[in-house]
């Protein structure tokens, strides 16, 4: 009975692709294709149908030996159930924000949360410095502390229009609307072609579209 279409035998996390398709920007076929990617990532270390932090890092950096402030932050934002692992629903809902067709406000909100390291509702100078230093270290780039400070000074001069030393959601929104390139990493063109990248989804598909 290899080809039993009984929906109760759907893979874990993909029991109801129609519901996920309704609540995200993905079509049912795209959800099914995304599940192929999820399977690949979630079976890299432990084949349990869930993505742990190590598997996430492995997929991002192709190595599990790297400590990354950002990979941690992205993982934690994906992990909306806060249990240290990603199920397919969390994965699909989070990646939906990165779809080229996702509303820009969702991208602005997600990026704000990403950079609001301490989740205080604003991005403070110390957090920006921490992220700049982490990015430079990651890419092996060396800038003096003076140069880093002056980059941050200039950024706050522009972004912190209320002059209170922090960037709130409204200021963040204004900044990224003036500089759309700051949101470039919030859109993944791959998601537009996900059904052609993972065509094998058709073998498990529940829909004809």
């Amino acid at each position: 009975n290899c080809c039993d279409a009984d929906s109760s035998k759907q893979p874990r996390g993909l029991e109801n692709p129609q519901v996920l398709a309704t609540e995200t920007v993905f079509s049912v076929s795209e959800i099914e294709a995304l599940y192929e990617l999820f399977k690949k990532i979630s079976s890299a270390v432990i084949d349990d149908g869930l993505i742990n932090k190590e598997e996430f890092q492995l997929a991002l950096f192709k190595t599990n030996k790297k400590e990354s402030l950002f990979a941690d932050r992205v993982f934690d934002l994906f992990d909306t159930k806060h249990n240290g692992i990603l199920d397919f629903e969390e994965f699909a809902r989070a990646l939906s924000v990165f779809h080229p067709n996702a509303p820009i406000d969702d991208k602005i909100q997600f990026s704000f949360q990403l950079y609001d390291l301490k989740q205080q509702g604003f991005i403070e100078r110390q957090e920006v410095k921490q992220m700049v230093v982490a990015t430079l270290a990651e890419s092996g780039m060396n800038l003096s502390d003076d140069v880093i400070e002056s980059i941050i000074d200039k950024t706050f001069e522009e972004a912190d229009t209320k002059h209170d030393g922090k960037i709130d959601k409204e200021e963040w929104r204004n900044l990224v609307l003036r500089h759309p390139s700051l949101l470039k990493n919030m859109t993944l063109q791959y998601l537009k072609d996900i059904t052609t990248t993972f065509p094998s989804f058709v073998f498990h598909s529940q829909v004809d579209d």
């Binding site: 990617l37 941690d72 700049v132 200039k154 950024t155 700051l182 990493n185 063109q189």
Partner: peptide, 25 residues
């Protein structure tokens, strides 16, 4: 000039924030 660069532009180039890597082998 690095000082004319927006700090967030720099941060957004971090590998950990570029999720296209998830799709690549």
């Amino acid at each position: 000039q690095p000082t004319s660069m927006n700090a967030f532009k720099l941060i957004s180039m971090s590998k950990g924030l570029n999720l296209e890597n998830l799709f690549e082998d």
